[in-house]
Amino acid sequence: MPTELVVLVSVLVFPGGLFAFALGLALKGVDRRVAARLQGRVGPPLLQPAFDLVKLGFKRTMVPDTAVPGVFLAAPLIGVVAMALAVALVPIAGVYMPDPRLGNLLVLLYLLSVPGIALMIAGSASGSPFGAVGFSREMALMLAYEATIVLVVAAVGLRTGHAEGQVVTFSLAEIVRHQQEHGAYLLDPVMWPAVAAFLFFYPANLGIVPFDIPEAETEILEGPLLEYSGPALALFKVMSALKTVVVLSLGIALFCPVAPDGIAGFAVWLAMMLGLLVVGISAVRVSIGRMRIDQAFSFFLKWPLLLAAASLTVVVVV
């Protein structure tokens, strides 16, 4: 197969595009079901997020008088496209290795911040005061958690680079290959603080309690999403489903990409995704309340940053 076609398939069919779309919706469904069960409720059917999307397809998209129509409608599209590309950048151990021409870890970092920016654009273009509050909160939170992920990625890059005889590597394929040969970073005590920092990062990046501050329903009525309805809102739901896949899959690729080849490796990967989802998202969001933006801001600039910096320092010094 010509390489252009391979790249196209990896973005549109597997693991990006269709596959990530289905998996993301399924993960969201599992999350809602598990959260309901933990609260002692019956919960919605597993396919509920898909039902929601179909429903939104039948509704009308209303554009408020105060909005900038073009930007208002383009924001969700930007987010979805960025995430569909990002999924194709993350390797699945033993199953999928991204084409190096798609980009490396640094490109992925940039793409990961696009949904946040799409939400900011959406909030400010909607012309709603709640959207504006959501915009400012999203920006503050992003400033706080981006530093953490950059340090985590630097620690992993340097560790792999040193071991491979280079200074640093930002190729996810190389990072995964190195761990497959020499053992996962999850079992490497030097990387444990970085793993912990990543565990704090991903609920914030996914906008999940206790860090769902920009979209707080009870305070600012879902902030940037307040004015969206119909298919435009559905696109935001798709974006958030894809982002779940990207972030969980990135965590696995950075710290634990150890799996047999072929279908067994795929099953192991799916099991790890589900584990991360249930333990790190569903169980957390039913057990604690939402932080205030100032609390979250100072929290991220203290503990996760400290943890990531600790890992990085040890990697650099040793």
Binding site: Q39, P44, Q48, E222, L226, Y228
Partner: peptide, 19 residues
């Protein structure tokens, strides 16, 4: 309240009239 869960019908209370 777990006893009267409306989410099993697919319902969700939403904050915005647009939703």
């Amino acid at each position: 309240i777990p006893r009267y869960d409306v989410e099993r019908l697919g319902c969700q209370y939403c904050g915005s009239p647009r939703h």
